[in-house]
Design a protein around this nucleic acid. Structure first.
Lengths: 336, 336
DNA sequence: CTGTTAGCGCATTCAA
DNA sequence: TTGAATGCGCTAACAG
């Protein structure tokens, strides 16, 4: 089998110069229709595909965007990636994925690779806004943070605080009075949760925290084990609702409650975050705060486009915060 | 901000020629250690990263591999992708993802893109082995089929037939006598299931089929609705076990049974396929046939490496079939 | 309307 | 041990 054809081969085949072939293939107006047809046919016959690497070297861009995320298998992440790929495909971009596992070190390797590969843009969920690798990425490549937001960086996130408020409100309105919050030490969702309680001058609403963090599937089992270790069927009843920082944690709680024989939502209500597919397949189906993923992805691409043209986004327009909404399902719904 | 540095910039900085820089950076033996150090330092300071596009154009390979799959959010697929990315990263490859949605048409666009991008290799789950796009891909690029297998193509799959046998055996041994198989018209798993029954000369084991197919998350709801439409609490008891072609379908069945108030596994046992995270988070936890994903991914990379060196794999060594194993969980386990 | 030429960044071959 | 020259494939500027 012969090597991959180049425009030179087509040129030879058609008895014209390379530039003519190049122009014909790019539908340049100054080529006669007859030539264009014959050239296109020849290209087709030879199975010609223009090499992106050559165009990239010339400075035309790689038509490749990357996403750097803390997990690829996480149900929310994989949905996000699916949308990014779809939107990218629509706009003529391929999508490269890189798993940082939430590690700043891994981010460093990844970012170097992205630079070497001259990706046109990056969607980034950084381990932290202080991550040096992330900062490098943001300063060298068109980079849009998704899911999170920071006024400093081009970012499109969901307001986790608002999400927390929605959950607090929902719990309050369904008469709950004592909540266990499960998640990392410092989470905006929980600040929003507390803020709602404060704003409503709710007295006597008890809140406790259980620290749990992680991006892999094991989080569910970890939370479950953690709860079973620290509580029994009686002591867990100090709470009548649980809010998990994400669906994985919430499901872990749900499982623990089932193990303890506590009815959900009758005994204790459980709410998650992300509205990932897991929330829908769980039984009882898990109430969860939904991020507007489609909108987020479309907006992120729009923002990235601006960055890719070399535009500097004015500070005021860098950060977008999308409103989440609460999807109430069986795990918190008591009926009327 | 200045443009990205090239080796020319480093050369100027260090007062040497480009070739010296190139050699120093690649640790060529004929450069003095002192020079290497100073050049490396300069490169570091300038934030230099060698452009992959330039090397690719020279014919060094793109260090990019792609995977073409029918879904990116499917729980099994996203786990597979995560492993592919990890293994690739270990070996210095970036991973590009492309979602075919199982459509031959989409595959065509994707494959053209892969050729244009000169990916070094492709992991492909084709919509069918007849797909012209897939065949093109396999003839032009180092391509390894994963999950499925065909003697004709380099492929590493799990024996779905063996998986079906395992389920049949498990159902038999737990005294089940009538099974509903849910999945596409033609599925090897079900052939394996039937084959087991035949081989054991099992008389009186009834088998029926419910056709359901798809790659998106909606499959779960579809199967659930489909069952509820066709059966009620009494008629569904014609069966005492259900085998879903994948975990999504099986979970749909599980939900329908729960809606009908049928105990699982006491009334009807349910088994899935893929052993995806969904099987583990389901309640009752879903028994499922596990594919050896890690092994599959490692073997697939090994096979791809051979292909990438230009080796032609002899017909007899093209196709590998890995043994699945059954993970028994609550949805089929009756206790002793 | 079409051909010639130059250059993108890099590694390598050939000279020194 | 190092430098100069070459070419990978493509497009655009410049000439006809």
């Amino acid at each position: 089998m012969s090597a991959r054809p180049t425009i030179a081969d087509i040129a030879r085949e058609c008895g014209v110069s390379q530039s003519t072939v190049s122009r014909a293939l790019r539908d340049h107006p100054s080529i006669s229709e007859a030539r264009k047809r014959s050239i296109r046919t020849a290209a087709e016959n030879l199975g010609f595909e223009s090499r992106i690497s050559a165009r990239t070297l010339r400075g035309e861009g790689s038509k490749l965007v990357a996403c750097v995320v803390p997990s690829l298998s996480h149900p929310f992440m994989s949905c996000l990636i699916e949308r990014l790929e779809a939107e990218g495909a629509l706009q003529g971009y391929h999508l490269m994925v890189a798993n940082s596992g939430g590690s700043p070190n891994a981010e460093k390797t990844i970012v170097k690779g992205l630079i070497a590969r001259q990706v046109d843009g990056v969607f980034f969920i950084p381990s932290s806004f202080e991550s040096s690798a992330f900062r490098l990425c943001g300063s060298v490549l068109p980079t849009v943070v998704v899911t999170l937001q920071s006024p400093e960086w081009p970012s499109i996130g969901t307001s986790h605080e608002e999400g927390g408020r929605l959950v607090a409100e929902h719990f309050m309105e369904s008469g709950r009075t004592s909540c266990l919050l499960i998640g990392p030490h410092d989470d905006e969702k929980f600040r929003g949760f507390d803020a709602y309680l404060d704003s409503r001058k709710v007295a006597g609403f008890r809140v406790e925290r259980l620290v749990a963090d992680g991006w892999d599937e094991g989080l569910t089992a970890t939370v479950q084990a953690n709860l079973l270790e620290n509580y029994d069927a009686r002591s867990i009843r100090r709470f009548d609702c649980i809010f998990g920082n994400n669906d994985l944690a919430a499901l872990g709680a749900l499982h623990a409650l089932q193990d303890l024989g506590i009815a959900v939502p009758a005994g204790i209500a459980v709410c998650g975050f992300d509205d990932s597919p897991w929330a829908r397949v769980s039984r009882p189906a898990l109430s969860s705060v939904a991020q507007p993923v489609s909108l987020m992805v479309r907006s992120a691409f729009a923002l990235l486009q601006r960055l890719m043209t070399g535009e500097t986004i004015p500070p005021g327009e860098r950060s977008y915060s999308l409103k989440p909404h609460l999807v109430v399902r069986d795990s918190t719904y008591l009926g009327k």
